[in-house]
């Protein structure tokens, strides 16, 4: 199959970018989307042109490094998969595919389709952890956790930190990402002592990074490659309201 790509090209952070058209020919429908980009890049390199820069690593949908908005959808047309698990059979011969970077003030473009998502790391650094130094843990079975709670925490913990929620949200809000981590730790007994402090600090960090605000449209949930539920956002809102009413410093 052959497709035509309209790809965002940008030399570096802060420079002007534009769309470029590239033809991708003789593709195998069993190729992954990223392998298709590999093929295009091989040709560009041989022709002495700059290959298209894009983020990727594990290529099995778990590391969260791949990004891209493909035809207006973060991670492409398939439901609940990352870009690296999108295959060319999801497109038709002759299609024109628009590929853009994740767009957010908090995710500045570094080059072409590569964006800087360190803002997510800084949010975790503000409180996305349990303060338990190595060596100070009680026996694993000393704290019973009901199966239901463990499963719910795992649902939240499945987040891969890719940023598709931000990319999909019309407001560029990071609520789903933050809520997943706040919820995972606030649900579990191990995380309870820092519950209020955690939510206040992480929300403060999220706001400081310049993400937009949640207007409950739930595009994030639809775009999430792991299907993280917006219920966790409600849960974080509740935790935040409770922490706010206690009126303690963050």
């Amino acid at each position: 199959m052959n497709v035509s790509l309209r790809v965002w090209r940008q030399k570096g952070p802060g420079t002007q970018g534009c769309f470029e058209t590239h033809e991708a020919r003789d593709l195998n429908p069993d190729m992954s989307f990223l392998e298709m980009l590999d093929v295009v890049n091989e040709r560009l390199a041989v022709e002495g042109k700059d290959p298209i820069a894009f983020d990727h690593d594990c290529r099995e949908g778990i590391c969260g490094m791949c990004s891209c908005v493909i035809n207006g959808e973060p991670h492409g047309p398939e439901f609940k998969v990352a870009t690296c698990q999108t295959y060319m059979r999801s497109f038709r011969d002759g299609d024109t595919i628009t590929i853009e970077p994740f767009r957010s003030r908090a995710f500045p473009v570094l080059r072409d389709l590569v964006v800087n998502r360190s803002s997510f790391d800084r949010i975790i650094q503000a409180g996305g952890f349990v303060s338990v130094p190595t060596g100070s843990a009680p026996d694993g079975n000393a704290i019973p956790v009901s199966k239901e709670i463990a499963d719910l925490a795992m649902d939240a913990a499945a987040c891969i930190g890719c940023g598709a929620c931000v990319a999909a949200c019309k407001n560029g809000s990071a609520m789903l990402f933050v809520a997943a981590k706040v919820s995972q730790l606030n649900i579990l007994p191990q995380g309870k002592p820092e519950k209020d402090r955690r939510v206040l600090r992480m929300v403060q960090a999220m706001d400081a990074e310049g993400f937009g605000n949640c207007s409950n449209t739930y595009a994030c949930e639809a775009a999430c490659p792991k299907g993280i539920s917006v219920n966790f956002i409600a849960r974080m809102n509740r935790d935040y309201a409770v922490a706010l009413l206690k009126n303690k410093p963050a």
Binding site: E73, K170, A219
Partner: peptide, 9 residues
């Protein structure tokens, strides 16, 4: 975005 879909919203 150049191309934008509402995605469930």
């Amino acid at each position: 975005y150049q191309d934008k879909r509402p995605l469930g919203a």
